[in-house]
């Protein structure tokens, strides 16, 4: 079920004076069940990249394979691909349109041509999976809080039973508690359902605690692609491209420079705490 990108290039507004490369020679292999963080600042090409994964954009050159098949073959069924590779866009306001939440979640499975009963069952399951309260099922999605809207948007994609779930900036604009809730939810979906998750973000702090692998995009190229602690070792380069490692990485680095016997590979708060306690002989 893996996604493979083979030398993918994408040029915006080709043949015009505005032409510029959004993706340059991107090669990636995302195996089944992985939890991946995709990081880059605005304009780094990360949004364009994920749109290649479910066939919304077509590479100028290069190929995208899903499950071993080239998704841009003329006889490839893109509609069923989009059910398998679910993409939740940044702002739920861009997709919510129905009069109540339940109907809105039904939209995806209905488009797959499933019988009404199956559609409703899936919608119900999906809303339960995102921890949505029964009492809001028949409320207008426009009256919900930001965090709740996002849950409905995620459920709308989950109801299509995707094998891969891509989320574009799912925490943008939420307050700290709201951010934590959504990230915990995504992490729970990964654990319980075993689906592949690609989490797009510009915040290292958000991502570091959850993912197994980080892909850093810069100016259309893959800059780093490794485990979080390996990526954060390059914190100086990360800073040059306008990103930063999580604050704990810096703290540990500075402590190390100040002569404390701590491991600088640490990426999460929990590990940092243990490392420092160890250094003070409290563990």
């Amino acid at each position: 079920m893996s996604i493979i990108l083979d030398h993918v290039n994408y040029i915006y507004d080709e043949d015009t004076a505005m032409a510029h490369a959004a993706l340059i020679d991107v090669c990636l292999n995302i195996p089944d069940g992985q939890f991946v963080g995709l990081i880059g600042h605005t304009g780094s090409g990360k949004s364009t990249l994920i749109q290649h994964m479910n066939g919304l954009e077509k590479p100028t050159s290069g190929c995208v394979f899903y499950d071993g098949k080239d998704i841009n073959d003329s006889d490839y069924d893109k509609k069923s691909l989009r059910a398998k590779v679910g993409l939740v866009f940044q702002y739920p306001e861009h997709q919510l349109f129905e009069t109540d939440c339940f109907k809105d979640v039904c939209f995806g499975p209905k488009n797959l041509g499933l019988p009404q009963k199956e559609v409703e069952l899936r919608a119900y399951e999906a809303l339960k999976q995102v921890g949505f309260d029964d009492e809001y099922f028949y409320q207008s999605p426009f009256d919900l809080s930001g965090g709740q809207k996002r849950r409905v948007a995620i459920a709308g994609v989950l109801a299509m039973k995707p094998e891969v779930l891509i989320l574009d900036e799912p925490t943008a604009g939420l307050d700290p508690k709201g951010r934590e809730d959504i990230l915990n939810l995504i992490s729970k979906l990964h654990e319980e359902m075993g689906i592949t998750i690609i989490l797009v973000s510009h915040s290292m702090d958000d991502v570091a605690n959850y993912v197994q692998r980080i892909i850093v995009m810069n100016k259309g190229r893959v800059a780093f692609d490794d485990e979080p602690k390996e990526v954060f070792k390059h914190y100086k380069e990360l800073e040059e491209i306008g990103l930063a490692a999580p604050q704990v990485t810096y703290v540990m680095q500075e402590l190390h420079e100040a002569g404390f016997p701590v491991d600088t590979d640490v990426t999460t708060l929990e590990d940092a705490k243990n490392e420092i306690l160890k250094a003070f002989g409290k563990c």
Partner: peptide
């Protein structure tokens, strides 16, 4: 631009 984004968001949910 917004229309483009909404179209894509709905296409990702199987809209045609």
């Amino acid at each position: 631009e917004e229309t483009d984004k909404i179209m894509k968001a709905q296409m990702a949910r199987g809209a045609d």
